[in-house]
Design a protein around this nucleic acid. Sequence first.
DNA 1: TCTTTTCGTTGATCTGGATCAGGTTTTAAG
DNA 2: CTTAAAACCTGATCCAGATCAACGAAAAGA
Lengths: 231, 231
Amino acid sequence: MPKSVVYNGCSVGENPLCCFDDLTQEELDFVEQNSVEVEYKRGETICKQGSFASHIMVIKEGLAKIYLENGNDTLILKILPAINIIGLPSLFDGNNTFPYSAQTYMDSTVRQIEISAFKKLIESNAKFAGQVISMLAENTVIINGRFFCLTKKQTYGRLADVLLCLSNRIYKTDKFPLQLTRKDLAELASMSVESTTRILTKFKDEGLIAVHCQEIEILNADKLLEISTIG
Amino acid sequence: MPKSVVYNGCSVGENPLCCFDDLTQEELDFVEQNSVEVEYKRGETICKQGSFASHIMVIKEGLAKIYLENGNDTLILKILPAINIIGLPSLFDGNNTFPYSAQTYMDSTVRQIEISAFKKLIESNAKFAGQVISMLAENTVIINGRFFCLTKKQTYGRLADVLLCLSNRIYKTDKFPLQLTRKDLAELASMSVESTTRILTKFKDEGLIAVHCQEIEILNADKLLEISTIG
DNA sequence: TCTTTTCGTTGATCTGGATCAGGTTTTAAG
DNA sequence: CTTAAAACCTGATCCAGATCAACGAAAAGA
């Protein structure tokens, strides 16, 4: 199975944010002039689904979840480490609100760019527009992968996926601080907290992971990947 | 709840395809010269996940499903009536394959446009690029809605959703030919064929729909919408 | 310091919906 | 027309995983 067909449940892209790389100094200044930087504490809401989307955001530091909410139900679409962009889907014609909410998992720094300035850049710089297209396209593919994972895999596969994603995509090491609670993990894997606990214990008993005080270590990534693959 | 937050399970956009509207005659000729039109019969595969994406497609006539496949599992991402575009997500840098498969539900006509020509248009015409961005962004929001629906609603809500979508978005009338089999409906609502049958019978018994020979009629759209909303 | 939440764990129970198994009806093919 | 193959329907069973309940441990607040 080619790599592109591996559906993983925790959607984080692999391509670094590059849409600003090719801007002229003048354009960079323009972005600078039309943006502000904001510090958020853990758990704060960066943007709220349905509210006016007056800006595109770039998460410069920290970690955030992007999610849909409807009543008491929430669905995490993806988690975003720095450096990534938030709010591109609100760019479509006739829409002026955020289609999702975002909240920080830890203290984070976010740059807000006026959406009108962002749109101006798209109109005036076709290369920039091309890169926005590229980001949107990749994002679509990534979220589709998570869509598949959450609808077709069962609990063990989903949680294995989340653990592998945290290790491979977010912290980029086998041993990482567990800054997310069981509730966070459960929400990411779209299951109950109790199931999360049970499966983590099982993984621990089988020697796939080790849980220290506030740290988690992946001991057998291959086996976890197998569990993720068979679903 | 604002309209944009209504998650429906059968993702079809409401905005007509408009990205070609503002092209010059010269650009339209360029598209024409770099494209071909193909006729497909019911059930034929328009594009295959993982194969080379040498072209972007426009479905000019007919109806198709866009889906992910992995082993025996398939997940329908959206269904596309004419006139809509297929393949935008394969536009991202470093990717040259289709991220999903597509298959016709009925005899359909598809125009294939060379991807290199399409990319050239994006590079040379910022307005066109802007419209591609708009389409991708809207598509993201729509698929997220289906994502939410399939992961958070239970069977009754999902099937109600599918029926409403067929009526409102695809056929645009309360009474429409049932060209999809129970298996198709089941796949769309992501449930078993048996459950689909049972729920349809229940809806019929309760007077929400009527099923004639090869035709289905929505009798109580309000009640169906309520079922869809509460999940 | 003590008290109150919040977090994590484990066992018992319940249930939505899949699966299985047996039909009939419709469509397609020979 | 006959036969084979889909498509459709209905009841019985089973199971993954949610929910409920109860309790210890850690963190936060007073």
